[in-house]
Amino acid sequence: MFSVTVRDHVMVAHSFRGEVFGPARNLHGATFVVDASFRRAELDADNIVVDIGRATAKLGEVLGELNYRNLDEEPAFAGINTSTEYLAKVIADRLAERVHAGELGEGAHGLSGITVTLHESHIAWASYERAL
C-alpha cells in the first residue's frame, strides 16, 4: 500500500457537554496540527499516489471552513461534542467529497482511503480512517 501525507493546521474554539470533559466544558481554544494521508494499492499512470499540490490545497480549503470559528456557533455542529476524534471524521469526510467530485484530479479516483490525524499536542492525537 502506498500513501502520501500532507499537513496543515486549524485553530478553533469550542466547549463540551458531559462530566467526562471536566474543565473543557467551558469555552476554550484548540490548535490542531492536521495530517491527511491518502492511500492506494498501486501508483497511478504518473507513478504518484495523489497530486501533492492539490491535496495540500484541498486540505487547506476544508480547514478554512473551520479555522478561527467557534464551533459551538456553527449550525453543522449544533448539539454535537466536537471532540478531536469527531473533527478528524468531519475533515476526512469533507476531503472524500472532494475526491469523489474530481477536485484532486482524475488520478485520485484510484485512491482507496484517507486517514486524518489531528494532533492536539506533541503527546496526544486522534485519527479517523475511511475507505473511498
Rank of each mutant, 00 (worst) to 15 (best):
K58G: 00
R39N: 10
K58N: 01
S121W: 15
A88H: 06
F77Y: 12
I123N: 11
D93C: 03
A57E: 09
E61R: 08
D8T: 07
A96C: 13
H9L: 02
V33P: 00
V12A: 04
S37L: 01
F2G: 02
A30V: 10
L118H: 08
V6F: 02
S112W: 01
A13W: 14
T82H: 11
G53M: 01
R7L: 10
Y86V: 14
G29W: 13
A45I: 06
L63H: 11
A88S: 14
N67I: 00
V99K: 00
T31W: 07
E85I: 07
V20D: 15
I48C: 07
F32I: 05
L59Y: 14
R69G: 03
R25Y: 00
W125Y: 10
T5R: 03
N70C: 00
V116G: 01
A131E: 09
F32Y: 15
G107T: 09
H119V: 04
D51H: 04
V50K: 01
T84Q: 07
E61M: 03
E120S: 08
G102Q: 10
V49A: 08
A88I: 09
G22W: 15
V4C: 14
P75G: 12
I48A: 11
D8E: 09
R40F: 00
G113Y: 03
S3I: 11
Y68E: 12
I52K: 10
H122T: 02
A41C: 00
N81W: 06
H14I: 11
E73I: 01
I91R: 09
D46K: 14
E120C: 04
W125F: 10
V90N: 00
R39L: 03
V12W: 06
R94P: 04
R69M: 04
A96M: 07
G105M: 11
T82W: 08
A76W: 14
D35E: 13
G60Q: 08
Y128S: 06
L95F: 00
E103N: 07
S121F: 15
R54L: 11
L95R: 01
T5Y: 09
L118R: 07
G64A: 12
G53A: 02
L118V: 12
T117Y: 01
E103R: 10
R130W: 05
P75D: 11
A41D: 03
S112P: 00
A36V: 06
T84R: 08
A45C: 01
T82D: 10
A24Q: 11
N81Y: 09
V33S: 09
E106N: 14
T84D: 06
L118P: 04
A124P: 10
A55Y: 03
L132K: 05
V20W: 09
L104T: 04
K89E: 13
P23D: 08
R54H: 06
A78K: 10
T115E: 11
L95M: 08
A76T: 12
W125N: 08
G105Q: 13
G105I: 05
E73M: 11
D35C: 05
E106A: 15
Y128A: 02
V34F: 04
H109S: 15
V4D: 11
I123F: 05
S127M: 06
L104W: 04
P75I: 07
L27R: 15
A76C: 13
G105T: 12
Y86R: 14
A30G: 09
R7V: 10
A41P: 01
D72L: 03
P23Q: 12
V33M: 08
E61Y: 13
N70D: 10
F32Q: 07
G110C: 05
A57I: 00
N70P: 00
F16W: 12
T56F: 05
